[in-house]
């Protein structure tokens, strides 16, 4: 009888510990995954902003950012040699740079370059808050998510996940005089 009780207690402890570890692992894994998603979105935004010609921050709830970049690749996906017109460097057509669109739909964030199909760059990110601040020569972005170590996550816990990115636009903007 005693053996059964002791064994039950040990098993219960082990199970509890396993569940706690599993939940901790899940929360930690979720945090790491969210962090990777956050970094990926931030890096994509920074990559495109650095080479952007025009920038328009979100115009509606679904659109996060619209920008244009030089049409660097020809139809064979090879880099073009640019041309100069009125002291402006143009890759391909001067009036048709490539539009890059960032949208949030459902729990995913998509990036669409030109006429290519939109590509999902982050999923399960319904808790992501992305803000874009256009300061002319620099654009600031910040991305926040909700960690799962406690539910609901506190405001401080959310704030602690913030990744700020201040990107200097390398090209002279064409949407400003």
């Amino acid at each position: 009888m005693m053996t059964t009780v002791v064994a039950s207690l040990i098993i219960a402890s082990l199970v509890s510990a396993a569940i706690a570890m599993q939940r901790n692992l899940a929360a930690g894994d979720d945090y790491a995954t969210a962090k990777c998603d956050q970094m990926r979105v931030s890096d994509y935004l920074a990559l495109d902003l650095r080479r952007a010609l025009t920038v328009t921050s979100g115009t509606n709830a679904g659109t996060l950012l619209v920008l244009t970049i030089p049409d660097y690749y020809d139809s064979n996906k090879q880099p073009r040699v640019p041309t100069i017109s009125n002291d402006v460097v143009n890759y391909g057509s001067a009036i048709a740079p490539v539009t890059v669109l960032y949208t949030k739909s459902g729990s995913s964030i998509y990036r669409q370059e030109g006429s290519n199909a939109a590509t999902e760059i982050a999923s399960n990110v319904s808790d992501f808050q992305i803000s874009v601040q256009d300061l002319n020569k620099v654009v600031k972005t910040q991305i926040i998510f909700a960690p799962q170590f406690s539910r609901p996550s506190s405001a401080d816990a959310r704030l602690a996940t913030t990744v700020f990115n201040t990107t200097l636009l390398r090209n002279k903007r064409r949407d400003r005089s």
Binding site: L47, R50, R51, I69, P70, Y72, Y73, K77, P79, P82, D87, V88, V89, Y91, R170, N171, K172
Partner: peptide, 20 residues
């Protein structure tokens, strides 16, 4: 004067990262 014949410098007129 940015196009004057006397060169004072070179500046970056275009910047692009080839990420393909």
């Amino acid at each position: 004067l940015g196009d004057a014949p006397f060169l004072t410098d070179y500046k970056i007129a275009s910047w692009f990262e080839d990420n393909k």
